[in-house]
Nucleic acid binder design. Structure first.
Lengths: 194, 194
DNA sequence: GTCTATAGCCCGATAGAC
DNA sequence: GTCTATCGGGCTATAGAC
């Protein structure tokens, strides 16, 4: 693995732990065992480093969503897989939430390059949720309640982000599982006994 | 208004804008027109200052919830009023979200005094939502979907927090309004034509 | 590519005059 | 209560040797 990738991996970890403004080149250098100046050789500025880390994260998410798109299965099952993915991440380490959700709270002080990456990521996820919901051939619970596909997609994104923050705050994945269950019920099929 | 209150007001503003680690005594001093040392006279440490600001915020929320408790009206109407309150805050200024929701993303690096205030606030809000939902005499939409009162309460909190972050990220209250509508539909009464 | 050294600035916090 | 002055440390970023 290249040194640049080492740096991005460690940076990713420290951003999740401390946020944009509270992690430093010194943190990364100390963890890898190099000097701060060496990081500047690979990533000239902090804005550049974080943009690279977020860009890499976005690519990873995109390829995961494309993989789900290529699979058999109903739309709700794909959404469930996405939720399961994050549940597993939180089980391994409560710190491990969506990089963009974490950085979003620092929006006003982020460099513009990073801010636009975060917005684009949220937009992509919402579009993906919306497309999935539209693809469903049978009516889902929320459609009976005067909630549009787009509103539900935004509701899913907000629920996931809020649930991640709650799980992290209490160091308890159960907080996320409750949101997951509630969201999955909303997008479940309407059946006769309901 | 006392000097200590001035300081807390300005601190509140800068925390919402920059978060815990990126706001400074110098920011506050500059805004008010005093010296950094004067702030240390009123609030010995940064942890102490932020705990005071969060404590004051929690008191304010508590008294608002108590006011809603004392009013006539169905449980859903009280929840709607709470959502309307935040919608108005966001309309005035997209920065103005829940202080604890904002600080929650910095949980791992916050001083323990602040961390426990945030947890306690989330717990109080969730308890209030749960109590309201239990009080409803008629079945609500979510109860038809195998979602418990407690799960719905957590879903409301997560939705509000995620919605606030989205509205702030895009500087667009519409992002919050969609969540509000979706949540209100879930807690609306089950009627014959649905 | 990595190092040492350092510039230039910001930080929280304290001492002590007034 | 507010000030000036300062301590000891952090930060991003750069210059230049190797």
């Amino acid at each position: 693995m290249s040194r640049a990738e080492d740096i991005m991996n460690v940076a990713n970890h420290f951003i999740l732990e401390r946020g944009y403004s509270a992690f430093s080149y010194a943190d990364i250098a100390g963890e890898i065992g190099i000097q701060k100046a060496s990081i500047h050789y690979h990533f000239p500025s902090k804005a550049n480093l974080v943009q690279s880390v977020v860009g890499r994260y976005r690519q990873e998410v995109k390829s995961n969503l494309a993989m789900l798109d290529g699979m058999e299965g109903e739309p709700q099952e794909k959404l469930e897989q996405y939720l399961n993915y994050w549940e597993t991440c939180l089980e391994v380490k409560a710190l491990d939430i969506c990089l963009c959700a974490l950085l979003a709270s620092e929006i006003p002080i982020l460099p513009e390059e990073v801010r636009s990456e975060i917005k684009a990521h949220f937009q992509e996820l919402t579009d993906w949720f919306t497309k999935l919901l539209q693809e469903s051939k049978t009516p889902l619970q929320y459609t009976a309640s005067n909630v549009s596909h787009e509103e539900m997609a935004h509701g899913i994104l907000a629920g996931i982000h809020g649930g991640m923050l709650a799980a992290r705050t209490f160091n308890d994945v159960g907080q996320f599982r409750m949101i997951k269950h509630q969201l999955l019920q909303q997008i479940s099929k309407v059946t006769a006994d309901q």
